[in-house]
């Protein structure tokens, strides 16, 4: 049983590898810009939420899976594979920038135009892209001690108290009563897999040209994580312990909704 599990993960990776060898398949990178409002995110820099709380971001890691290129007729081309992208502040993490073994793991050096998923697909003019931030359900509940990267224990995304992975992990600091405190959001479980849709079939506003030369860049505006507070609150109160440290529970539900609205396509 355990052998089969390892085999399947390996196959996902090798299908990915093989398909690029086929003639009509070309490479196309899915890239990301991390923003705070309109500005590029600087790891470790202090920002303010709309409610006025100071915060910084030291680490952001997330899985991308279920990538699809959407065609003009509404059908889509699925790209197999799973990647883990990681942004880490070198000042707080001596290992930042080091690649992990196996799998597709991207350790970003800056927060702009970093590859988060390498697409291999038939060349063409697509109407957009969709993907999930998370680990597919069929991979999310296996014995983490028997699977390879990017799902192995070294990923730092395994959730020991819950059989499954953290899909989206962000950590940083905030000030509470003049004292520096950590803040963090660990979002996961099958309910909270983010489904990001960036396509448009009716107008020609979105173009994803897969020709082996171009790439597609999406933007994630981290300010939006704090867009709304739970239970209808107008803002996110980082001074509350339950809104500062989140590993599941109803507050993650609001963060999830906020995050759904934080993605856009960079033009």
């Amino acid at each position: 049983m355990k052998k089969i599990l390892v085999g399947t993960v390996f196959m996902v990776a090798s299908v990915f590898g093989l398909s690029s060898a086929q003639n009509n398949m070309v490479k196309h990178d899915l890239k990301i810009n991390l923003r705070v409002g309109n500005a590029p995110l600087e790891l470790g820099k202090t920002y303010k939420t709309s409610a006025g709380a100071e915060y910084s971001v030291d680490l952001l890691k997330f899985y991308v899976s279920n990538v699809q290129l959407v065609k003009a007729d509404g059908s889509s081309h699925s790209v197999p594979g799973l990647s883990l992208t990681s942004f880490e502040n070198a000042a707080t993490n001596s290992m930042a920038g080091k690649m992990l073994e196996g799998g597709q793991v991207y350790n970003a050096k800056t927060t702009q135009a970093q590859t988060m998923f390498s697409i291999s697909a038939p060349a063409g003019d697509y109407k957009g892209v969709r993907f999930e931030i998370g680990v597919p359900k069929e991979l999310n509940h296996r014995d983490a001690s028997t699977v390879a990267m990017p799902l192995g224990l070294e990923s730092g995304m395994f959730w020991a108290w819950n059989p499954g992975y953290i899909f989206f992990r962000i950590e940083g600091k905030t000030m509470v009563d003049g004292k520096t405190q950590p803040w963090l959001l660990h979002m996961g479980t099958d309910n909270w897999r983010l489904n990001i849709n960036q396509f448009d079939l009716t107008t020609n506003k979105i173009k994803v040209l897969v020709d082996g030369k171009n790439s597609t860049t999406v933007q994630l505006d981290l300010e939006k994580i704090f867009a709304k507070g739970p239970n209808g609150a107008a803002s996110w109160d980082l001074s509350q312990p339950a809104l500062r440290v989140m590993h599941g529970g109803p507050n993650v539900g609001q963060a999830y909704l906020n995050l759904l609205g934080a993605w856009s396509l960079a033009q």
């Binding site: 993490n93 290992m95 080091k98 992990l100 014995d143 983490a144 001690s145 224990l153 070294e154 990923s155 730092g156 395994f158 020991a160 108290w161 819950n162 059989p163 950590e171 950590p182 963090l184 440290v245």
Partner: peptide, 23 residues
């Protein structure tokens, strides 16, 4: 958590326990 092996990942990585990144 189903096993002692996987459980140990919890305290090692939890921000309010030993707080170390696996790698």
């Amino acid at each position: 958590s189903p096993s002692l092996e996987l459980q140990a990942m919890g305290p090692l990585t939890a921000h309010d326990e030993m707080a170390i990144e696996p790698r």
